[in-house]
Design a protein around this nucleic acid. Structure first.
Lengths: 233, 233
DNA sequence: TGTACATCAGTGAACGCGCGTTCACTGATGTAC
DNA sequence: TGTACATCAGTGAACGCGCGTTCACTGATGTAC
């Protein structure tokens, strides 16, 4: 993004137009898929296509901004869903609330979900600044598990062996994000997050068509299964 | 596809060129992502772009052919992996062999995997003829489970309740594909297939970067977990 | 408070490119008698 | 077996379109004195 500081009128107008460009871009994404066209955005906003270059250096920069926004929106949805759950000790309830919120966000903004969690956009490589926002949602899930573990509320679950080197890798990851979790618990958490992502993508990308119609119930069933697999009670 | 019958020389040459067009298209897909360009394919084959219209009525028809081929290739990989497993009663082994084969195929042809299981291609809607090939791979997994069930080798597993109507829907599905399975078992099978799909997509679409490097071990851990969840022993 | 100058947003034309699809055509391969 | 005709594959030009990005420009907003 073309950064510019200050709180003058000009700066505020600038911020507003930047937001308008992004939301026009999101609308375009919803209509056309990942083929983002700067000219089409400019057309919708009634301005010359060259004007966009005062706000974003090029197409990729705009895409990056959209990706970061999407990760942040998904992360925020997860965080508020967890925060709103009053009974903090009801870990299964929190897991259900958060995974449902993730799904609801995805269904409300399918093209943005596809942008961050679908197949990569051809010819685009995400810069490093996305990793922070990208980890918000999974961290919320992880925190539910670590809360349960800390409260001694995590059931023992039979599980396949973890090879030593994989185990060591998981220990490093837990360390880096500051999670107090045993390696097997972290492994199960990532597994469950992967399943959740798979369930949402399946529904969104049409793999559930002609298979399951009662989508809400089916999702809940899956979420509960995964909560149980992780050991939440 | 522009159908034409006969086994004359002309017909054989025609079949060969059709295959060449598809494989050039696949190469293009691998290089550029889902932005399939007829002109680029024609260029690579050293022919006029208009010549392609003797083989495919338009771009969408070529895409459809590629999608069907990809589903078939994935299905064939699953089927041969299962067939090659000699110990038919070793259901966990068969599950591992098949899911590993699915992953291996996806890693060897990431763009084709993305074509069928990634985010939908903008502006393209799959016709009905894809549903047959699309179900080959999941059916192989389902058959392993139903074999285990038939052999009485499926462990009882605690699981969340299935709402009656969802249960009825699952019964219909089992009926349609001719699977002799109880609804809870079918539910767990679809869940496990969803997780498997999520695991492969996670790896392929870069979500595992900076998280897990020992991919083979990680995948096996997940596959074994899912086998256990379904009740394979 | 007013003036002079610098900064910035937005314009419109242009560059150079690629795309899917159609169409009238040529020449080779196949078929019927 | 040879000839006449129909079928087919492939060509090359053209239509009409859209794209990202650059550039010199105008006029408005902000800043310094």
């Amino acid at each position: 993004m073309v950064e510019r500081t200050g709180t003058s009128i000009r700066a505020r107008v600038r911020a507003e137009l930047t937001a308008e460009i992004k939301s026009a871009a999101r609308r375009q994404l919803a209509a056309e898929g990942a083929n983002l066209s700067l000219r089409a955005i400019a057309r919708e906003l009634g301005m010359a296509s060259s004007a966009l270059y005062r706000y974003f250096a090029n197409r990729d920069e705009l895409l990056t901004a959209l990706i970061i926004d999407a990760y942040d929106a998904l992360g925020a949805a997860a965080e508020t869903a967890d925060a709103r759950h009053r009974k903090r000790a009801d870990h299964v309830g929190r897991w259900l609330a958060v995974t449902r919120a993730l799904r609801a966000w995805a269904l409300s903004a399918p093209s943005e979900y596809a942008l961050i969690l679908g197949s990569p956009v051809p010819g685009y490589r995400a810069p490093a600044d996305t990793t922070g926002p990208a980890s918000r949602a999974p961290l919320v899930l992880a925190r539910i598990i670590s809360d349960a573990a800390a409260a001694g509320a995590l059931a023992d679950v039979a599980e396949p062996p973890l090879p030593a080197k994989l185990r060591a890798e998981l220990a490093t990851v837990a360390d880096q994000v500051g999670l107090d979790m045993s390696e097997p618990v972290l492994a199960r958490t990532i597994l469950a997050w992967t399943q959740t992502y798979g369930a949402i993508s399946f529904e969104l990308f049409g793999q559930l068509d002609n298979l399951v119609d009662r989508r809400d119930e089916w999702f809940d069933y899956q979420a509960r299964s995964m909560a149980a697999l992780v050991g939440l009670t």
